[in-house]
């Protein structure tokens, strides 16, 4: 068995195992972490297919950014795993229907297309780089569209800031320069009053209660 197949089966097994764990583990934080593992295994399988750009983007974008956001959300929301587990029966019929529909689709696809083994594509030469190929296309043929897409993102930022950034009249702000300049006289007020004296009323009140 060539090394590439061993590696493929290894990552494939990890992928399936972690994907199964995502839906079976009770703790949502573990589920997110298993999802990270499954994304990572998928990225490794893409690397085996020499799709190195996709693999890197999957790790950077999904593992690096999206899943961290997921973790944030899961940790902020108080998701009670046990509570969910009790309600699972309610969604069972719907889930069953969806599963049947998906299975039927898969079946039809395999029925019409067949499931023959495809030959492994010829490996690219060592000097070949998807990143370079993509970059060359993006910065020549699609330069104009690429730039317009960049402006689109800029407008999204401006619009978001214009719509959310505001100074509400009631909000309190810290002013560091005021804080530094403050003097003792403004913070502490010395009150001259008579020395300590027994307050008989307070005592009497307590006594009544007990």
């Amino acid at each position: 068995m060539p090394i590439i197949e061993i590696v493929f089966y290894l990552f494939g097994a990890v992928l399936i195992a972690s994907a199964l764990s995502v839906v079976t583990v009770g703790n949502p934080v573990y589920a997110v972490l298993f999802l990270v593992l499954s994304f990572f295994s998928a990225a490794c399988i893409w690397l085996l297919l020499q799709a190195e750009f996709l693999a890197i983007v999957l790790v950077l974008v999904y593992v690096g950014a999206v899943m961290v956001l997921f973790l944030f959300v899961v940790m902020m929301l108080d998701v009670d795993g046990e509570q969910r587990r009790l309600q699972i029966g309610r969604y069972l019929p719907v889930g069953f229907l969806v599963a049947v529909a998906m299975a039927a689709q898969l079946f039809v696809l395999i029925w019409t297309q067949g499931l023959e083994l495809q030959a492994m594509p010829e490996p690219y030469p060592e000097s070949f780089s998807h990143t370079r190929a993509l970059g060359e296309l993006l910065y020549t043929d699609y330069l104009y569209a690429f730039e317009v897409a960049a402006i689109l993102l800029l407008v999204a930022i401006i619009a978001a800031i214009a719509l959310t950034h505001r100074r509400r009249p009631k909000t309190r702000y810290q002013d560091p320069s005021d804080q530094v300049k403050i003097t003792k006289g403004e913070r502490v007020r010395l009150v001259s009053m008579a020395s300590e004296r027994e307050t008989s009323e307070a005592r009497g009140g307590n006594g009544d209660k007990s």
Binding site: V148, I151, L152, V155, A156, I158, A162
Partner: peptide, 23 residues
């Protein structure tokens, strides 16, 4: 069609924000 769509989105995105301009 790519640039047509991108231009349309650029116009639309800016217009959505303009409509909500008075918060």
């Amino acid at each position: 069609m790519l640039t047509l769509y991108l231009g349309l989105e650029l116009l639309a995105l800016a217009t959505y924000a303009l409509v909500a301009f008075n918060r």
